[in-house]
Design a protein around this nucleic acid. Structure first.
Lengths: 219, 219
DNA sequence: GAAAAAACCATATGGTCATATGGCAACGCG
DNA sequence: CGCGTTGCCATATGACCATATGGTTTTTTC
């Protein structure tokens, strides 16, 4: 066998370069030449690892959404370990998708770039669809769990509430990016978004949690 | 004076061509050549009426947002003429921004394209900001009016509710476009969005309207 | 240590784009 | 009626892009 290289590492390096470029200057800035330069490789090598630019972009997109979901999953695990009420866990997880710091602002920009791309690219659209479905399903499950542990009223429509909550999070993210300096009454935009979320969660999860007492931690 | 032409008409024709192209195939499809062809003119003429492509796109964007706002304003006027409660008026206006038919799907696509463009283009960002601010202000005013006519609780935070409602509308629009075929329980996606909106509006506007009795229609 | 395969690179190619340029056609005004 | 302005067009120009092509370099194995 000849010379070897870590394929996954290379692909990750290139995907990171794509991410940085899009986060900084938008999708159009992510040309093959720019990606190669940013990652410190030649154009030829990028071609070596990705059959086409479309493949490269899709890979970078999938990577980022997976990262985001993993970050949220970690917060959920931590919250469950601390036996926090579901409402509190959601309250910490959902703002992860808000552009509140430079990292998340970058992710927001990349997300938006691909969102628009998804309008004309079925493959990207499918990734976006699955990601949204996954988030929605997790929120719906959180609401269902809330019913079992007493935080949520039994008659609540978990699926419908999940749609509402995820939509609100997404919409608020747009607002926060568009006008980070906005003031709502005496609140900053970020505080306002936080309060809005708190109130909705308080309405959906009005009860006290029976802290997993005697129940096994079934995930 | 020599030969004359209707400048505003020409610019409008070109803006409409831009709209059609973006609605159908995305922002990248709106090249100068494509716009010229779509509008039935030469490239040179498009250049004659717009100093640059940026100008052309900005004009098209401003035009569309103005059209949308006008359409909503018309619904508001109609609703007020019919002495409908504010809640009912909002319930009819807000779904105007949802991609429920081909026209609005097109508008949604154009909006999204420019939204992404706004991330890297301050001029476009400013238009998006002002449009969002205008919508938010109108919703906030609707809530304030609701207080006066008895539909809304006096202690409600109109500004905060306006942020929440507009964010929800925007987020639901994304959902509806992404998965128009989604079913939420027994509801279609459109029905689900409608129900979500209805319930939120019912929560914010729980009271009966004192139908403008004895009050002048101060807009 | 040599062969071979993979890693990696520089550059060519063909296409597309925004914009520039130069000119023709039409029409209002004198 | 003809002059001049403006409406309008065809094409040139130079930049940039994704991808193709034909290498050179490195490293492993026998």
């Amino acid at each position: 066998m000849p010379r070897t290289a870590d394929h996954e590492l290379r692909r990750a390096q290139m995907a990171e370069a794509v991410h940085r470029l899009i986060a900084h200057d938008g999708l159009d800035a992510a040309t093959m030449a720019a990606v190669a330069r940013e990652a410190g490789f030649s154009v030829g090598l990028v071609q070596h690892y990705f059959a086409s630019k479309d493949d490269l972009l899709l890979f970078a997109y999938e990577r980022m959404t997976a990262d985001q979901l993993a970050r949220v999953a970690r917060l959920v695990t931590e919250g469950e370990a601390d036996e926090q009420p579901i409402r509190a866990i959601l309250l910490r997880c959902m703002p992860q998708l808000w552009p509140l710091d430079e990292v998340r602002r970058g992710e927001y920009r990349v997300n938006r770039a691909f969102h628009t791309r998804s309008l004309d690219n079925p493959t990207v659209a499918e990734v976006a669809r699955q990601t949204a479905a996954s988030v929605r399903a997790q929120v719906a499950r959180a609401v269902e769990n809330g019913k079992e542990c007493g935080e949520v009223a039994k008659h609540a429509d978990a699926e419908l509430l999940a749609v509402e909550l995820t939509a609100m999070i997404e919409g608020l993210a747009d607002d926060l990016y568009r006008e980070p300096e906005l003031r709502v009454g005496e609140r900053t935009a970020a505080e306002a978004a936080q309060v809005i979320l708190e109130r909705r969660l308080a309405a959906v999860f009005p009860g006290e949690c029976r802290h997993y007492r005697g129940r096994s931690e079934t995930d």
